[in-house]
Amino acid sequence: MTESPVTVYEPAAANPDAGVAPKTPPRRALGSSPLVLGTIGLLALVLLFEILPRLEILPSQFFPTSSEIGAALIDQLGQPDFWAALLDTIYGWALGLLIAAVAGVVLGIVIGSSHFLRELTASTIEFLRPIPSVALIPLAVLLFGTAIESKLLLVIYASFWPVLIQVLYGVQDVDPVAQDTARAYRFDFWARIRYVTWPTALPYIMTGLRLSAAVALILAVTSELVIGNPGLGNRLAVAQSSGAIEATYALVVVSGILGVIVNLVFRYIERRTLSWHPSQRAEVAL
């Protein structure tokens, strides 16, 4: 395969936002499988966090042991408030992501389909995109206080851009021959979107969604933490300020697990919706 370097680098170079590395293709290792080694790695982490604070290599007043964190975690799982907070976080995340995704896909297809609009909006998008979403925090607080709208404002702003940018790339990636063929066969506008643009852009949309999902979670938790909307972040802030350090760590672990689940779910959705796409087939063939 002479073109292998191109395909290898494609995600990083073509998508400025694509930072998430593609999964390592499963390969057979000599001796132990990645699954076993990975489990050992996780266990080692837990063990380190048990031993180091006990030996005071890490000061135990700041670093509770794994068993203490685990106990705090179980304690949290038994509290109805915890589940309410978790639901609040997930609700804000999902609603914000949904709005951002719909807006990003629709605007991306509209802008991307027209050369004129693309040129007209390019500079504005390039300017607005790098504006850190946290810049909106003061405005969100003033306008909405701790109501869910302030969380949504931050989540939507942050997760809108990855989707939009990816859709723009995807729409531009449409094969001109396919486009012309569809035109020659008198496909109308909607049919061209449905049968030509959409399938081409779908892998890009999925990448954008996966990136946005992670960003949206970060912003949802951040807004709870900083603004004080009800949710995991707020619970964490309360735990920290009341000196419940084990609970603080436990909630950090929960947010990490939530992040892992979000990543896994979106990778799964990506693989399912794109099972027909060459990029996914190639992985199976390896």
Partner: peptide, 23 residues
């Protein structure tokens, strides 16, 4: 090393960075 650390790294990457501020 990669196989050993991959799940650990996936976990750390998934933690929303601002939540470590309180700690």
């Amino acid at each position: 090393l990669r196989d050993l650390l991959e799940p650990v790294l996936e976990f750390f990457r998934a933690i929303p960075p601002p939540v470590i501020v309180p700690i």
